[in-house]
Design a binder for these strands. Structure first.
Length: 599
RNA sequence: GCCCUCGUAGCUCAGGGGAUAGAGCGCCGGCCUCCGGAGCCGGAUGCGCAGGUUCGAAUCCUGCCGAGGGCGCCA
């Protein structure tokens, strides 16, 4: 289901034609290609299709597990195959130790020179050694999707934050990305919203700090007042038939909401802007065509008065074939029709090869049906393909949907404000000498970062429990911990009075085990970025950054950088510090999180 | 009823078919005149249950148990 066209399994099974080879990369990736050839020559199997299964190891710098499976294939002893691969000498130049262990594992220890060379290449590279994807996708990412005239609440958080990170990751490895914010700006509610706006007068507008009262007032009138209800219904007809004055009022509502969305997006620090809005209204005049084309293609059937497409493999609660309804019994279209029009638009107009839907897991079946129908109709055909990036819910401490005490949706702005406020207090306590304006700026980075990181750092498919104390802690797998690690490294350079770029060509020594561990962690960044993109799994980046920060702590504990008596290792260790800070900063940036230089 | 997802340490979570399942928080016991403790070292407790595939399963398959979600005219 994951997008295998994006990238191979990074680090382990390279298909060399898929990557530009002009930058250095993860050593595990580099040696995979060499080992694949060595296994091919030893076993006589074709190199294509051989996976040497190179993995990080707690017994060495890396371990190669491929001999066990491949020996089985050719009916030989795994240890013998492993020995033969070692005997080819393919790894002699870059390994100080290569030993066969257990049933046929090959344990590798890289030479210090090889690791230092790889590190130097990363240090000199603005991309920190991260390869570009060789197959460039034109990716359309659909995320956030708030509704006009309604507030953004905690229910919009995950789609917006996960989608933003996926956009940044795709862009970083070279894909062309189109952001699509599919806002709810059309449909029957707009009759009452427009009438309510008219009732309020010419200068009326939605309160951008709290749109809900507007919607609720319109709703209340609609429910209580038959005259208003009739006006609202007439207004829907006028809107759908394109009445200019009605459209003008509708446009005011949309523009007003767009301003509100922009405020929230700026507060949240995501890339979405007004230009990314692509609401349901944009597809309004294409919906009849969608149904017509389905009819022409012979896919359309009648069921209980509605026009539907029966989708193979889907059944309802009676075990009967499950239809996707594209035109309701009384003629209206629904979201399935709109979603199909979207697919056509994204493939035809935008030239999308990859359609990413960052939408909650409950819609998995709906999207699977839409994708299937789009394929059946020929609208979604290779190379174009669609991926549902689903996610679980945000839960409260009671493990139920996160709500206020009175059971209402938590407003996104209020949530962000509270995070910033709590973080600012923590920063003020930790660094009381910092000027107030800087405390405020850092508080924003830390508070917003903490909220985003809490959302991104666990497997997106699972629900997670929203917990201020845990996400804002300076210990554990949190944004503040990583930001603090970054700030501390920056502080080393301030103290040393050294410009960071000046250490980027320094030779690196890896004599201490903690230096080696840190070096190995730094060199994994390339593989982790690709793994994260391939799986649409930001939590993998989070796990890596936390591991990296831990590796740095071990290094920092054991390896004095600026202390007297360590002058000869100073430059080398500063180089490790710099590369660590840059990797933390870049990794956090790919998650949409800022890394302050002091906090 | 059918379908989907999830079930790993007391808690929150990692774990790409490979060797002895990891981390953080919490707990217990030590250590450091520490470049801003993001401290350091040691210890205890675990893959929901039962089968199967495999040389090898937390990982793949089947069944069961438990939690959440979905299942024709809301989006």
């Amino acid at each position: 289901m994951c997008c295998s066209r994006l990238a191979p399994k990074t680090g382990s099974s390279p298909t060399s034609d898929r990557y530009h080879r002009d930058t250095m990369a993860d050593p595990l990736f580099t040696i995979s290609a060499t080992l694949r050839d060595a296994f091919a020559s030893v076993t006589g199997l074709p190199a294509v299709g051989i996976d040497p299964v190179v993995r990080p190891s707690d017994r060495a710098d890396a371990q190669v597990n491929g001999a066990l499976a491949l020996a089985k294939q050719v009916g030989r002893n795994p240890r013998e195959v492993a020995d033969a691969v070692v005997a080819t000498g393919a790894l002699a130049a870059i390994c100080s130790a290569v030993e066969v262990a257990g049933p046929g594992f090959i344990n590798l220890t890289f030479t210090e020179a090889f690791l230092a060379e790889q590190l130097a290449a990363s240090a000199e590279d603005a991309r920190l050694g991260v390869r570009m994807a060789a197959v460039t996708e034109r990716a359309v990412v659909d995320y956030s999707a708030p509704n006009v005239a309604k507030e953004m609440h905690v229910g919009h958080l995950r789609s917006t934050v996960i989608g933003d990170s996926i956009v940044r990751l795709l862009q970083f490895v070279g894909h062309e990305v189109v952001r699509e914010n599919h806002i709810g700006d059309w449909g029957t509610p707009f009759g009452m919203l427009i009438e309510h706006l008219l009732d309020l007068g010419d200068s009326a507008a939605i309160d951008m700090s709290d749109p809900n009262p507007f919607y609720q007032a319109a709703r209340a009138k609609f429910d209580a007042d038959d005259d208003f209800k009739a006006r609202a219904r007439d207004r829907v007809v006028a809107l759908q038939s394109g009445d200019p004055s009605t459209l003008a009022i509708w446009q005011r509502l949309v523009d007003n909401s767009a301003e509100y969305f922009d405020i929230v997006y700026r507060q949240l620090g995501v890339l979405l802007t007004h230009d990314d809005l692509m609401g349901e209204s944009a597809y309004h005049d294409k919906l009849a065509g969608v149904v017509e084309q389905l009819a022409v293609k012979g896919l359309l059937e009648q069921s209980d008065g509605a026009d539907v497409v029966f989708v193979p493999g889907f059944t309802n609660r009676e075990g009967d074939p499950l239809p996707l309804i594209v035109q309701k019994g009384h003629g209206g279209f629904n979201y399935a029709t709109s979603d199909l029009a979207c697919v056509i638009d994204r493939v035809d107009r935008l030239g999308a090869t990859l359609l990413v839907y960052v939408v909650g897991s409950p819609q998995a079946q709906h999207l699977a049906m839409v994708f299937k129908v789009a394929e059946m109709a020929g609208w979604l055909a290779p190379p174009a393909h669609a991926v549902h990036v689903g996610f679980g819910s945000v839960l409260g401490a009671d493990r139920k949907m996160y709500k206020t005490r009175s059971g209402e949706n938590v407003k996104l702005q209020a949530l962000l404000d509270e995070g910033v406020q709590r973080a600012a207090a923590a920063v003020a306590e930790k660094n009381p000498e910092m000027p107030a304006d800087e405390q405020a700026a850092v508080g924003r980075m830390v508070g917003i970062g903490a909220i985003k990181y809490a959302d991104l750092s666990t497997d997106r498919i699972k629900d997670y429990v929203f917990d201020w104390d845990r996400m804002l802690a300076f210990e554990g797998n949190t944004a503040p911990y990583l930001q603090y690690a970054h700030a501390r490294i920056c502080s080393i350079f301030r103290r040393a009075g050294v410009e960071r770029p000046s250490v980027r060509s320094a030779p690196v020594s890896l004599a201490e085990p903690q230096e080696r561990s840190l070096a190995l962690a730094l060199l994994q960044f390339d593989a982790v970025v690709h793994d994260t993109v391939e799986k649409f799994a930001p939590h993998r980046m989070c796990t890596y950054l936390f591991d990296l920060a831990q590796a740095f702590t071990g290094f920092y504990e054991a390896c004095p950088v600026l202390k007297d008596g360590y002058e000869t290792t100073r430059l080398s260790r500063l180089a490790l510090c710099d590369l660590t800070a840059r990797t933390l900063q870049q990794g956090l940036a790919l998650l949409g999180i800022d890394a302050p230089e002091r906090m």
